[in-house]
């Protein structure tokens, strides 16, 4: 365990000195409902005027035959309007399977897309969730790029999302 931690630390230190990190945690709440299906979730970056900047992830039923799982992507209605309808799905590194209840971590580094090309400015991490026979919820968490000092922000969902938190490290 300790060895593993040391190894991780070494890896971190070995990275380029200017690499900033954006860590996102998206909590899918456990719901006590008669009919439960894992939610469709889209996670993307928006500029301060709420225009689309970059897609981070979209979790949907990617395993259904003949791409039938794409039928409900329009229920992620903000994401569908801002990005989804322009895309040829699946998108490498963005499309993924639906996730179980729990906290899901995403990690992005400034030396890779999409942060690599992100212009300085104010942004939001946006998380939108839509669940079959359930509800739809959208949360925005603001941040400033590039990262000047370590920062943490979070937003609390009410129904389809739990806590969405982001951690920024310069």
């Amino acid at each position: 365990m300790r060895k593993h931690l040391l190894f991780s630390l070494a890896l971190l230190l070995a990275g380029p000195a200017f690499a900033a990190n954006l860590d996102i945690s998206v909590e899918i709440p456990r719901l006590d409902v008669a009919e439960y299906h894992r939610p469709y979730i889209a996670i993307w970056l928006e500029k301060s005027d709420q225009s689309h900047a970059a897609d981070l992830a979209v979790w949907y039923d990617v395993k259904m035959a003949d791409k039938k799982g794409e039928k409900w992507l329009k229920d992620l209605r903000q994401w569908w309007r801002k990005s989804g309808r322009n895309l040829e799905l699946p998108v490498d590194g963005v499309s993924g399977a639906t996730q179980a209840a729990g906290a899901h971590k995403l990690h992005y580094s400034s030396d890779k897309a999409p942060l690599k090309d992100l212009a300085p400015g104010n942004y939001f991490v946006v998380v939108e969730a839509a669940r079959e026979v359930g509800e739809r919820e959208l949360l925005r968490v603001p941040f400033t790029w590039p990262v000047q000092q370590p920062a943490q922000q979070q937003a609390q969902g009410k129904q389809e999302l739990g806590t969405v938190s982001i951690q920024l490290k310069p």
Binding site: K67, K68, G69, E70, K71, W72, L73, K74, W80, G84
Partner: peptide
């Protein structure tokens, strides 16, 4: 009026 997917 707004649809996603291939078999619409």
């Amino acid at each position: 009026t707004v649809l996603s997917g291939d078999d619409s």
